[in-house]
Design a protein around this nucleic acid. Structure first.
Lengths: 335, 335
DNA sequence: TTGTAGGCGTTATCAG
DNA sequence: CTGATAACGCCTACAA
C-alpha cells in the first residue's frame, strides 16, 4: 500500500479506502489508485486484514457424524454454502468431525476463541449432542443444517421431513399397499423421529394398523438397512412395501430383497428418503423424497453471513419444502 | 499476555516465550506463567500470531474433479490428512473445486499470494490441467494425492495402479477366465492410463488377445460403467469377466448385468478398483483393489508439513502399495 | 534469564 | 476529500 501511495502521491490511508471500496474518495484519485494497484500486482495481505478487523474470514464446517464426509449429502450442502460464500471474502475451513472432543464443544469453542473461525456450520447434529450448550455460551454464530435443534441461540435450516413421509405414504396407499414396513433411523437424530412420526401419523389417518414387527431400526447406513430388511422380509405376512428413513438404508433393503430372490418392485416396493445422487443410479432407480440440501446450504450460508456482518446471533428455524420423486422401485402390490 | 505478565511481575515477552514453549526461561517463572494463563483463561489470538509469523496456518484442499467431494475417496484422504494435521497448529480450508477459474490456477494462486493458505493438497488432478504450471511459479508447496504428475516442483503421492491391475488379472487367470473385458477411465487421469496399461500388459504376457470391442470407456462414475457394461455384455462371444478401472464404474457394470438377468458371479465376474467403502456393501460384495487412500493422505500431509516448516518445496513421487481384495463378485467362468 | 524497542499491514478515528 | 496518528497482539533482535 505504501508503494501505491507513493506512486500516486497520496497516503496509504487513501489507498486503503479505495481498495476497500469505501466512498468519500475523489473519482480521479480512485482511478489512479486502482490503476497503480493493478500495475504493481498488489495483493492484499489477508493476514493483516484479519488481524486488523479481528475476523478470520473463515466459516468452520463440522459434524459429529462419521459417515457424512463421503456422502452426497455433504457434497450438496457444501456446494450450497459455496455458491453463497464464493461471492464474499469468506472461505471455509473443515474442522474435526467425529472426535471424542467434539461432543463437549471444547475443540470447536477453542477454534472460535482463538479466532480461527468467525462462525460455524454444523451438519448432522444429534439431539443428544451436548456441545451446543457449550458453544451457545460463547455467542458464536451457529447454523445447524439438516437437523432441527432446540436452543435459543442456535439457528437451524431443515426440511419438512414429516410432510415428505406423508407424501410417501399417500403414494403407497394409492398404489394399493396396506402392509407397509418402516426402517427407522437412529433415535438421536431429529430427522429420524420426524420421519417416523410422519409415517405413523399417515397410517393412523388411513386407519391402518402397523404391527410392531414392521418397525426396524438402522443407523442411517447400508448395513443397517440390509439387516432391517432381512428381518422385515421374514415377517408373516410379508410387507408389500418397505419405507426406509434414508436412501442409504433403502439400498440395504434392496440387497436384503435380492438375497432371497425378490424382484423390485414386482414383489416388494421400496422407498427411500433424501434423494442422494446414488438414488437415481440404483437398480431399479429409487423412489424417494428429495431434500433440497444445496438450497439448505445456501440458506444457511446466507443466515451466517448476515449474522457475521451484523455481529448478531442467528436464531430461528428455517424449514424448506421437500418433494416426492417417483422412480421405479414402487408399484402396486402383486395379487 | 499483558494481563498475565502483570500478574506474574514479568513482561509480555517472557509470557510469549513460555506460551510458545521456548526454552531459556526459569522453571519457576514458566510455571507461574502457565498457571496464571490457565487461571485467566488465556487463549492465544491466532490472527495476531498469523500476522506476525506471516503464516495462515491453513493447508488448502482443492480438486478440479466434481465428483470427488461426496466420495469415500475424499473422505479417506481427508481423514488421513487430519490424523497428521490434528497434532499440529494447522487446519485445513476447503477451496473451490471445479470452477472454471480453477484450471488456470488463478484462484488458487491468489489464495496463496494473499496468504490464506500456506500450502496446497490437490486431489484427482487431470494430466491436462494447466494450473500446476501457474502455481509452480509461485513456489507454493503442493502435494498431489492419487494422481501422478510430472512437474519438477510438485510432489505426488500415489499408488501402484499397474501392479494392482496385474494382481487382478492374475486372479482372473487363475479362475480360468480368458475373455476379459475392460472399462477404462477418462484419458486425462494418469491412474486411468496406468490401470489400463496394467491390464494390457498382463494379457500380453499371458498371450491373451483382447479384441478392441472388449474395451469401453467411462467417466469414473456409475453411469459410465452402466453404459460400458451394456455394450460389453452384448458382445459375441460375451466376456466371462469385466474389469472396471474403478469401483463406481464396477457398480454400473453390476446394473447392466442385472438388466439382462445375468447373475454375478455365476454368469459374469466383475472386478473394481479403489476399494471404496461401498464396495463391501455391494451385492454381491465386490472384488477390488485396495488403494491405501488414508495412508496416502497421511503421507501427503507429512510431506507438506515438512516443507512448510523448512520453507522448502516438496518434490518427488511417493508410491504406496496396493492389495487385491477378493470378495464374491468373481468366480470361475461357467462352462 | 529477562527486558526493551520496534515492526508486521491494515484500518479507525479524528483533524484539517 | 485526504492526511496524521495510533492501535491491533504477537514475535524477532538485541541489550542488559
Amino acid at each position: 500500500m505504501e508503494d501505491i501511495a507513493r506512486e500516486c502521491g497520496v497516503t496509504k490511508m487513501t489507498v486503503s479506502r479505495v481498495l476497500a471500496g469505501r466512498d468519500g474518495v475523489k473519482q480521479s484519485t480512485r482511478e489512479k489508485v486502482m490503476e497503480t494497484a493493478t500495475r504493481l500486482n498488489y495483493e492484499i495481505n489477508a493476514l493483516a486484514q484479519s488481524f486488523s478487523s479481528n475476523r478470520s474470514g473463515f466459516v468452520g464446517i463440522a459434524t459429529p457424524f462419521d459417515g457424512l464426509l463421503g456422502s452426497s449429502y455433504f457434497k450438496d450442502a457444501v456446494n450450497g454454502f459455496r455458491r453463497v460464500l464464493d461471492d464474499t471474502v469468506f472461505s471455509f475451513s473443515l474442522f474435526d468431525t467425529n472426535s471424542e472432543s467434539f461432543n463437549d464443544g471444547e475443540k470447536l469453542g477453542k477454534l472460535y476463541r482463538q479466532r480461527r473461525a468467525d462462525a460455524l456450520l454444523l451438519l448432522a447434529v444429534h439431539t443428544s449432542d451436548r456441545f451446543l450448550e457449550t458453544l451457545e455460551q460463547l455467542r458464536i454464530p451457529i447454523v445447524v443444517v439438516g437437523e432441527r435443534v432446540d436452543h435459543p441461540n442456535v439457528c437451524s435450516v431443515s426440511c419438512r421431513d414429516r410432510h415428505g413421509m406423508h407424501q410417501v405414504c399417500d403414494h403407497l396407499f394409492k398404489l394399493g399397499h396396506h402392509r407397509i414396513a418402516f426402517v427407522e433411523g437412529p433415535r438421536d437424530f431429529s430427522t429420524a423421529s420426524r420421519r417416523k412420526e410422519g409415517f405413523v401419523q399417515s397410517c393412523l389417518e388411513k386407519g391402518l394398523e402397523i404391527p410392531d414387527s414392521y418397525f426396524q431400526q438402522g443407523h442411517y447406513n447400508t448395513r443397517g438397512g440390509r439387516e432391517a430388511g432381512r428381518i422385515l422380509l421374514r415377517q408373516n405376512p410379508r410387507p408389500t412395501a418397505i419405507i426406509a428413513a434414508n436412501d442409504a438404508m433403502a439400498y440395504g433393503v434392496y440387497e436384503s430383497a435380492r438375497e432371497i430372490g425378490l424382484r423390485i418392485p414386482q414383489d416388494i416396493s421400496i422407498v427411500g428418503f433424501d434423494n442422494e445422487t446414488a438414488a437415481a443410479d440404483m437398480f431399479p432407480p429409487l423412489t424417494t423424497v428429495h431434500q433440497p440440501v444445496s438450497e439448505m446450504g445456501e440458506e444457511a450460508a446466507r443466515i451466517l453471513l448476515d449474522a457475521i456482518t451484523n455481529d448478531s446471533l442467528p436464531t430461528g428455524q428455517k424449514v424448506l419444502d421437500v418433494s416426492l420423486i417417483i422412480r421405479e422401485s414402487t408399484a402396486p402390490p402383486s395379487a
